[in-house]
């Protein structure tokens, strides 16, 4: 969902919080689906590989993928081929 702008500020600057309102999940053509949550727990580094920081770990354990921002780039599925599958939206 892209927020419609009603006013432009000096020099087109925006509040950092507005980036949270710009939900890039709508750009997805393919969506990653996690098939094995236990396996995900062993690969916390995958959180760093996601360019959107959309793979959320809480207390060191896999929590969920934030589909509001996941753009479906497939880097995570490429890294953990048996664990994450890219499905057509």
């Amino acid at each position: 969902m892209v927020k419609e702008i009603k006013k432009v500020d000096l020099g087109a600057r925006i509040l950092a919080s507005e980036s949270e309102e710009y939900q890039t999940g709508s750009w997805r053509k393919e969506i990653p689906v996690v098939k094995d949550k236990e396996e995900m727990n062993k690969h916390v580094e995958i959180a760093l590989y996601c360019p959107e920081a959309a793979i959320v770990y809480v207390g060191g354990k896999y929590s969920h993928i934030d589909y509001k921002f996941c753009k479906g780039c497939g880097i995570c599925a490429n890294y953990l081929k048996k664990v994450i599958e890219m499905k057509r939206v």
Binding site: I5, V8, G11, A12, R13, I14, L15, A16, S17, E18, S19
Partner: peptide, 16 residues
């Protein structure tokens, strides 16, 4: 918490 140096394309550039 402000972002400077944004893109402002055909939809808003002339207003800025």
């Amino acid at each position: 918490k402000i972002t400077f140096g944004n893109v402002s394309l055909t939809d808003s550039n002339i207003e800025v």
